[in-house]
Write a protein that binds this DNA or RNA. Structure first.
Length: 673
DNA sequence: CAGAAGTTGCG
DNA sequence: GCAACTTCT
């Protein structure tokens, strides 16, 4: 035992600086650094081409850094991370495993399982917070409940009684564990057809932790001070460009936070108001990233279900033609189209333009937001499940503090707001390049002679708008009243205990996902909660139906107002304790119970069995010994909601929308429908 | 000119 | 949904 080495399991923490798992491994002695590539585990969220390209570069970078410290990065190809970990344990004689927390649903399930299985094998497992300023379970309102709006959440984060932990320095030297019997697999991240497109990416981006560090320094010493002034320009290089680095954990968000804070103090002392505002705005975007993990942890389905239940009844337009026009940048709205072409060409989009194209998708085209989210997932360099889910839910009006659902932003006006001189449109839509600025964002109004002079033939080399804004507004109003009717009918049926007839509503409800729709991918249903998607690479732009049709969809939607009672992460030590209580049990010393298959369908934060000795911890900042885990939904998943009628505190949302107060009983619906 | 009506930003 | 702001009448 004493001779045993430690495995440091790298995932989305591809850095050596401020990496608590790595630091713990180094402290414990010899280290085997491992990365396991098991993309099939991600199901529908198999990483897209550009995201895989980034990962490949980032791993190479990490490997060379680790080598210079004394040990290589062992890479393994796998379809089951946990069994691969076990193999690595056996071939290296490791006695400890260290890793950093992730908060997406799949990782929570997998990491929980890893911890159970490895612990059962006598391996000491410890996990750490490396991705967040504060762990999700440490940020609560005065009643100890999780927040449901961002502003309150972030305000609390910024005024926590203790600062986020200071960043750790990188190790000076790593003693390598014995990997002579643990050879690396060659990992393939791109196929032949992808190489050409990928070659272009290297011109614009430099993955890897030390490049991330440079990007951070450059931003903080440069564009940060003008961030508030410049952030609206679609075309300018005034954002931090940190998001892909942050996604892969190449730079620690705590380091970002600390460095930005230093500037904040400096500028505050100088009375630099613009600088201060810039810092606050930039930190807010860091906060949104935090919040995305927070929401994912508290609402494990937020990447596939609207958080506000009534949106379940919105009659989405299921139109592949619209979807295709959007993807190809042929909607007839120049700003939208320019954005979509940029996204396809570069894997990147300014935050404002993400809002423009996604809100056009949801409000004008009224396509189901999850399709758009899936497309973003496939194409964005910084594709991030939690952040993207939060973004799309925000746009779709399915958050208590989301955008008003019934408002349509006019891309023409937004064009002049974000791209006043039309430069952005001209860059990405060369066919419109010769159109004067006056008409660049609404070519359909331009005089025919002008169009001719500019070489534009609307409907031919550039499309007319595929949907008029006025028509979209009318259709949106109709859709919304239909939604409320369906919702009311549904609630009435629930109250009467007569769900008959609701089969209809469930059918037309967009969320009973379009079974009738023939998408282009082979699909098979989820089995054992580990969906296998057969991907067709000819057109990764079409989302798979499997990404939409999940058995769980027949079940419940977690209404956000049920937060405290639903699938929220808890810190249970006994299986059946009251959840509120159990969340506090965290601070009262750990029981090592990991309730594996107990049918508790919610997240749970389980005390780390490898860390029992730390369990005297009295402050929640000691939650380093805690792993967030999540038990997969079982057949009993919706049972929890069926009887869940106890009073839930009023959120601001509830006060505004008493009509969606009722908890929906999706299970009964699906059984009868 | 006051007040209504519409717009915009909000995370 | 609301506050702040602009435009209309």
């Amino acid at each position: 035992m004493s001779g045993g080495c430690s495995i440091v399991w790298f995932r989305r923490d591809l850095r050596i600086e401020d990496n608590p798992a790595l630091a713990a491994g180094v402290r414990a002695g010899a280290v085997v650094a491992v990365f396991i590539w098991a993309p099939e585990e991600e199901g529908h969220y198999y990483p897209g081409r550009v995201s895989r390209w980034w990962l490949k570069q980032s791993l190479a970078h990490l490997d060379s850094s680790l080598r210079s410290l004394g040990t290589p990065l062992v890479t393994k190809r796998s379809t089951d991370s946990v069994s691969t970990l076990l193999e690595v344990v056996k071939s290296t004689g490791a006695t400890h495993i260290f890793f950093n927390h992730l908060y997406d649903p799949l990782s929570l399930v997998r990491d929980h399982r890893a911890k159970e299985i490895l612990t059962a094998q006598g391996i000491a497992v410890r996990s750490f917070n490396a991705d967040l300023l504060y762990e999700p379970w440490d940020v609560n309102d005065a009643q100890g409940r999780p927040f449901t709006t961002f502003a309150a959440f972030w305000e609390t984060c910024l005024s926590m009684p203790y600062d986020p932990e200071a960043p750790l320095l990188p190790p000076k030297r790593i003693i390598s564990g014995d990997i002579s019997r643990c050879p690396s697999d060659l990992l393939i991240f791109e196929d032949e057809s992808e190489k050409g497109s990928n070659a272009l990416l290297a011109r614009a981006w430099s993955p890897g932790w030390s490049n991330a560090d440079k990007a951070l320094t450059t931003f903080i010493n440069g564009p940060l001070i003008e961030y508030s002034k410049n952030r609206r320009k679609a075309d300018s290089a005034t954002t931090s460009f940190l998001s892909p680095h942050l996604h892969f954990g190449e730079v620690s968000v705590r380091k970002v936070f600390h460095l930005v804070r230093i500037k904040q103090v400096l500028w505050a002392n100088e009375g630099n108001k613009a600088g201060e505002e810039s810092v606050n705005l930039f930190l807010k975007s860091i906060g949104l990233r935090e919040y995305s993990r927070y929401m994912s942890f508290n609402h494990p389905y937020s990447h596939e279900r609207p958080l506000l239940g009534h949106l379940k009844f919105f009659p989405w337009v299921v139109d592949e033609g619209y979807f295709k026009a959007w993807r190809q940048g042929r909607t007839g709205y120049p700003l939208v189209d320019a954005g979509m072409r940029e996204l396809w060409a570069t894997g990147w989009l300014h935050d404002r333009i993400r809002v423009v194209v996604s809100s056009f998708f949801v409000k004008v085209l009224q396509l189901p937001w999850r399709w758009g989210m899936k497309y973003f997932w496939d194409t964005l360099l910084d594709a991030d499940l939690e952040s993207d889910a939060l973004g799309w839910q925000y746009i779709s009006g399915t958050l208590p503090d989301g955008r008003a659902f019934d408002r349509i932003d006019n891309p023409q006006f937004e064009g002049y707001k974000f791209d006043p001189h039309g430069e952005y449109v001209r860059r990405w839509l060369p066919e419109l390049a010769r159109l004067p600025t006056e008409w660049i964002h609404h070519p359909w109004n331009a005089p025919e002679s002008l169009l001719q002079a500019a070489g534009i033939e609307l409907g031919s080399n550039y499309p007319l708008p595929i949907v008029g804004i006025d028509a979209a507004k009318v259709r949106l109003q109709e859709a919304l009243s239909e939604m409320w009717q369906q919702e009311a009918a549904f609630r009435a049926a629930i109250e009467n205990g007569t769900e008959e007839g609701l089969g209809d509503s469930s059918e037309s409800a967009p969320f009973a996902f379009p079974q009738d729709m023939q998408m282009e991918e082979t699909h098979e249903l989820v089995r054992n909660n580990l969906p296998t998607t057969i991907r067709r690479y000819e057109d990764q732009m079409v989302p798979s139906i499997t990404s939409l049709l999940r058995v769980e969809d027949q079940e419940t939607s977690s209404d956000i107002q049920n937060v405290a009672e639903d699938s929220r992460g808890v810190v249970p030590r006994n299986v059946n304790v009251n959840q509120e209580q159990s969340r506090y049990a965290l601070n009262q010393g750990a029981a090592q119970t990991i309730h594996g298959n107990n049918n508790l369908p919610h997240f749970s934060v389980v005390s780390d069995p490898g860390n029992v000795e730390d369990s005297t911890a009295e402050s929640s900042s000691s939650s380093r010994g805690i792993v967030p885990v999540w038990s997969p939904p079982t057949a009993s998943y919706s049972d929890q909601f069926a009887g869940d009628e106890n009073g839930i505190g009023t959120s601001s949302y509830l006060q505004r929308h008493p009509q969606s107060h009722q908890i929906m009983n999706w299970r009964r619906l699906s059984q009868n429908g």
